[in-house]
Design a protein around this nucleic acid. Structure first.
Lengths: 208, 208
DNA sequence: TAGATTGTTAATCGATTAACAATC
DNA sequence: TAGATTGTTAATCGATTAACAATC
């Protein structure tokens, strides 16, 4: 291991999958696993899993494998989800609604703390456990609470402008649900989840 | 070009992004673009875009670039979205609800035709423009209508079983919203959209 | 024509895998 | 001990980029 070495982003992208699967094994009462078993479940080669993990340390034991508890803890530290990140939801449509009520965040290092919409008719309405806030207050709240993560669920033609405002207010990571490629500074991280691009990636292989 | 050659999946994965951006340019009235301009918008090198496209044919003109209309049409054919694929939504929770009402499918080659849930208390309720159907009818409907695409939005602990039933009924492509790695035969395509794995990929780079 | 941009080749770069000594 | 599995190196494989002739 060489803890100062550069970690390829493609490796970083696999770590959450390892963590998710390990936590599931743990939940099912399992205590130990191997790169072979984990790879089997994920469709990833055992060698790749060992190589990925070895970039961060030596977490296993020859002849035995990996203690699930310990590896989960290490991965949570590596991915910075050994705390809970506050997030804002921007856009109180159907997607924003689903995100506001999603139960799966808090176990895994995140929580929604506020929901914003620029439609005055929506402001004040209940959405899950939140009251919809005006986007007029957005920058201030983000700055005051030092929020770094945003879930962007506005229509495509408003997404870039909303992203600009979020970044200006200090947001560093955006999970973008709008079907558009955002232009952002290098220090801002974006992940896209447009359902249609995923579908089109599959329809390529389908026959009519 | 060599139309019989194997296309790497990583290339297939970029084509929907090209298509999405080109359709947006078209919508804004633009007629011509270049690999340079497209790459600029997507954060992809011009050489890569030209190379990717050249795997499928010669779509551009030296000195000029690409006719957007023509390239859009070709990409739609390549990705098999020059028709509309029928889809079923499985799971009528918040995510299923958002998917059932999502306005962005039909423009881009897909449409939801039915929504299923195994909760008898939900069956019959309205969800967007649909009535929730019992999963008892699911296999039959999928088979009769020859549906190949499913949006899977059930809780994690029911996802594998639901996937098994879908595959058994003839589903070939699953967009999986459950935070779990599905085990499927090789002829079935799965894309995952777990929001938390995306978030964790970003939190790795964030500082407390 | 001069400038621009394609399609394609060859070179570079990076990621994956095979193999094995170390060791539990 | 014998069997299993790690961490790591070197080899292989694949993807990206640089460069340029062709040509609009």
């Amino acid at each position: 291991m060489d803890s100062d070495s550069f970690i390829p982003d493609i490796v970083v992208g696999r770590l959450p999958l390892y963590l998710r699967t390990l936590q599931r094994m743990k939940q099912e009462g399992q205590c130990i696993t191997s790169s072979h078993e984990l790879g089997e479940k994920l469709g990833i080669s055992p060698a790749q899993i060992r190589k990925d993990l070895s970039l961060f340390g030596e977490f296993g034991k020859q002849g035995t494998g990996y203690q699930i508890d310990y590896l989960v803890e290490k991965l949570r530290q590596i991915l910075h989800v050994d705390k809970i990140w506050d997030m804002v939801v921007v856009g109180a449509g159907d997607v924003g609604h689903a995100l506001s009520r999603y139960q799966g965040f808090s176990d895994r290092g995140f929580q929604v703390v506020m929901v914003f919409d620029n439609d005055p008719n929506k402001v004040g309405l209940e959405i899950g456990p939140f009251q919809i806030q005006s986007t007029d207050l957005m920058s201030q709240v983000i700055r005051e609470k030092n929020i770094q993560v945003a879930l962007l669920a506005v229509p495509a033609d408003q997404a870039q402008e909303a992203a600009n405002r979020l970044i200006e207010a200090g947001i560093k990571a955006i999970l973008n649900y709008a079907p558009i490629t955002l232009t952002v500074p290098k220090y801002v991280y974006v992940q896209n989840t447009d359902p249609v691009t995923h579908l089109q990636r599959m329809s390529y292989y389908l026959n009519f």
